[in-house]
């Protein structure tokens, strides 16, 4: 089973996770830029984070045979902090980089005017840079948030067919599907979706334009949830081709809209006793 995790925050994960993911079949992933738990206080903090997503983290992933890409954005939560807003002016120079495959995560957290502005601004940036957009849907007041999100997308220069709306569930999937957007589902241990509900939704709505991710981060989450969904799909009668479509071809098709996917991992890196994530000289 080949797996592309289209949404996982590897900066928050360990090399054990990389190893387990590779063993489970993960060969590619996208790491969206997001909130770090601890609030940032300046654009400089974002720059270091973006640089890590374009530097150290792809190197780490390559050590474990996994192709790493990222999405770049000011996340919805910190769009409300005026100390962070100036980072919007620095996004264009990041959005031209190789391996940046979308603008994201953008969207709504608390549906404030500041979030309206950041979302609209960043959808325009996506259109300007030939990139699709990864749009987070809010945890609270989710259906209203989805509707408002889709309205802003329709008013933007970015076609809805170039938008992935993420963290969908039973209450939001139908309207999201009717909009023509790509459909993202995050499978979590306790919250968001679980494997059984995910498979039920796949049966009801079909695998077309559906992406399944672990969204694993610094909270309680599981980087192997993609594999667990694939296993349950097979156990419940889906074909290997269905699984490959959901867990590989759909994410490749969506992020491939950027023209920047590079799925061959040529780690070509030095290894030392099988591990080059060493603290050499330190």
């Amino acid at each position: 089973m080949r797996i592309f995790d289209p949404h996982i925050h590897m900066t928050s994960r360990t090399t054990d996770d990389y190893e387990a993911m590779y063993t489970a079949g993960v060969r590619a992933l996208v790491e969206p830029s997001f909130w770090l738990g601890q609030p940032r206080t300046s654009p400089a903090s974002f720059r270091d984070y973006f640089d890590a997503l374009l530097g150290w983290e792809p190197f780490r992933a390559a050590q474990y045979g996994i192709a790493h890409h990222c999405t770049i954005a000011l996340n919805p939560k910190e769009a409300n902090d005026p100390r962070c807003l100036p980072v919007l002016d620095e996004l264009p120079r990041y959005l031209v980089k190789d391996r940046v495959v979308a603008v994201g995560e953008i969207g709504y957290d608390s549906m404030t005017p500041a979030e309206d502005t950041a979302l609209a601004t960043q959808l325009q940036l996506a259109a300007d840079h030939g990139l699709p957009a990864l749009v987070h849907t809010p945890h609270r007041d989710k259906l209203a948030g989805l509707r408002r999100t889709l309205d802003v997308v329709r008013e933007s220069a970015l076609p809805t067919e170039r938008v992935l709306v993420d963290h969908l569930n039973e209450t939001t999937v139908k309207e999201a599907k009717d909009s023509g957007a790509w459909l993202g589902f995050s499978v979590y241990p306790d919250t968001k979706m679980d494997e059984a509900r995910m498979v039920a939704l796949l049966r009801e709505y079909g695998p077309d334009q559906v992406l399944v991710n672990s969204a694993a981060d610094w909270g309680k989450s599981d980087p192997l949830k993609t594999r667990k969904v694939g296993d349950l799909m097979l156990a419940e009668g889906f074909t290997e081709d269905d699984v490959d479509r959901v867990l590989w071809r759909n994410p490749v098709a969506f992020y491939g809209l950027s023209g920047r996917l590079e799925l061959d991992v040529t780690s070509g890196e030095a290894t030392h006793e099988g591990n080059s994530i060493l603290r050499g000289g330190e």
Binding site: A270, T271, H272, E273, S276, L278, G280, G281
Partner: peptide, 11 residues
């Protein structure tokens, strides 16, 4: 130190 680091990290 750079040469030593090569030996440490397998470069």
């Amino acid at each position: 130190h750079a040469v030593l680091k090569c030996l440490f990290t397998g470069v």
